[in-house]
Amino acid sequence: MKSAFVYLASMLATLSLAVPVQDVAVARSEPTDLPRLVIYFQTTHDQSNNPISMLPLINEQGIALTHLIVCSFHINQGGVIHLNDFPPDDPHFSTLWNETVIMKQAGVKIMGMVGGAAAGSYSTSTLDSTDSATFEHYYGQLHDLIINFGLDGMDLDVEQPFSRNGINRLISRLRSDFGPDFLITLAPVATALENSANLSGFNYNVLQTDQGSNIDWYNTQFYSGFGTMESPNDYINIVNTGYSPDIVVAGQLTSPADGGGWIPTADLNNTIITLDQKYGQIGGVMGWEYFNSLPGDTSAPWEWAQIVTEILRPGLTPELKITKQDAERLQAAYSTSVAANGNKDKSFVKKPSVNYMKWVNA
């Protein structure tokens, strides 16, 4: 456990030497990563409780991923932040965090997402507390998480009542503490940006007025009955409400197993063509979530990203460089993750589902 995370810490400390850094002279209103291809990485282990690798998203041909969002982080009253069911520094996640280092080396921005369907993160007992000491306590946990794991940004998925003052305070602190290049995004349902059905408690049109200069984009949920990309109508309605197309990322389910409102990528393609013709370019596409994305499903979930790259970002595939030392460290991290899950089959530990040594090319 210790060696895997020592490696992670040492790599994070030197990332600025290996990862392309946005020129600080470039204004935040002039993004260079459009249109974005964003994928949420929530299911970190397969049904046998073995780590799922994210590296095919940069190693497989024809994928131009821009952002990967590790999720879901939950703030727990009276406790510590969890990534799904474990603290984020649990050896359970050794593979995940060591692989994010490689993703960054390929130019992918690694973000976290806090909130989601589970209540608690934005309650009046945590981040929405009117007691400044309480807010500072729980915000401090989030702040330390960002530092400790070298996150490039934070996605605020508010699916419980959260006050206008609370969301403004949180966004302002993140921007103040982490500077202009730190990514701050939100994940509203599409109807919330149309000034209609809303899960967050606050009004997004008012929030855009209050904090628009501090918000990079919206990972907008066009599914679950709150909107669809089957036609361009909902997206157009959002732009007509006052949102620039470059900050509206069209969120899609990657599989009907993930909820209601899934549409085939062929339908998405038709809608994107229409929107590109109308606006020149949109903010991008987001996929929820990685592990079972169609058409490859759990055996080849990266195929969804290949298809969407052809729709959004053809010819922009980054090149992965991995050394033998990288591969050895990833192998050790995988062994740590498997051991943390109680799998003592040593022959299995020597043969992870991803052959890291096969990827050595530098």
Score class of each variant (00 low, 15 high):
N76V: 15
F226C: 02
E289Y: 07
W359G: 01
P295N: 11
G296S: 06
L294F: 08
G112L: 10
G283R: 00
I263D: 01
N205T: 13
D267H: 09
A9Y: 10
I52F: 03
A333R: 04
R169F: 02
W262K: 04
Q331T: 13
M54T: 10
I236W: 08
Q281E: 15
R173E: 09
Y356K: 10
T100H: 03
V308D: 01
S3M: 12
S224C: 08
Q277E: 10
V38G: 00
I81N: 04
T32G: 11
Q221M: 07
S163P: 02
Y356A: 12
Q141E: 15
T209H: 09
A133Q: 12
I263R: 03
S129R: 02
E310G: 13
L37V: 01
L65N: 00
F149T: 04
Q331G: 08
V70T: 10
D89K: 07
S53F: 08
N84R: 10
V80T: 15
H137G: 03
W288C: 03
V24P: 08
P180H: 11
V360Q: 03
S16G: 03
H82M: 12
V70I: 15
P352L: 10
T309N: 05
N269Q: 13
G201R: 06
D326R: 06
Q306G: 03
V38Y: 02
L96V: 12
I52T: 07
N195I: 05
S353V: 10
N270Q: 10
S10A: 14
N59M: 01
S123I: 04
S121Y: 02
A305C: 02
S53A: 10
F135Q: 07
R164D: 14
F86H: 14
A25V: 14
D131M: 05
E230Y: 08
G150M: 05
C71Y: 03
W288N: 02
V158M: 01
F162L: 03
S196K: 15
N214H: 13
N148K: 13
A119W: 09
D33A: 09
T309D: 05
D90P: 04
Y279G: 12
A340L: 05
G62S: 11
T43G: 08
S293Q: 03
D258T: 06
S3Q: 14
K346H: 12
S163F: 04
M229D: 02
F149H: 08
S224A: 15
S293V: 02
S132P: 03
Q281W: 08
D85Y: 10
D155G: 07
M286K: 00
P245T: 13
S353N: 13
A18G: 00
S293M: 04
L17A: 08
V24D: 15
N361E: 03
S3I: 10
L186V: 05
D155L: 06
A27L: 12
N341A: 09
T185F: 01
S353R: 12
D90A: 15
M357D: 14
A9N: 14
A339S: 15
I63Q: 02
Y7D: 11
Q325I: 12
S335N: 13
W217A: 01
G212S: 06
S48E: 15
D155R: 04
I81C: 09
L15G: 06
I238D: 02
D89S: 13
A332D: 14
M113Q: 12
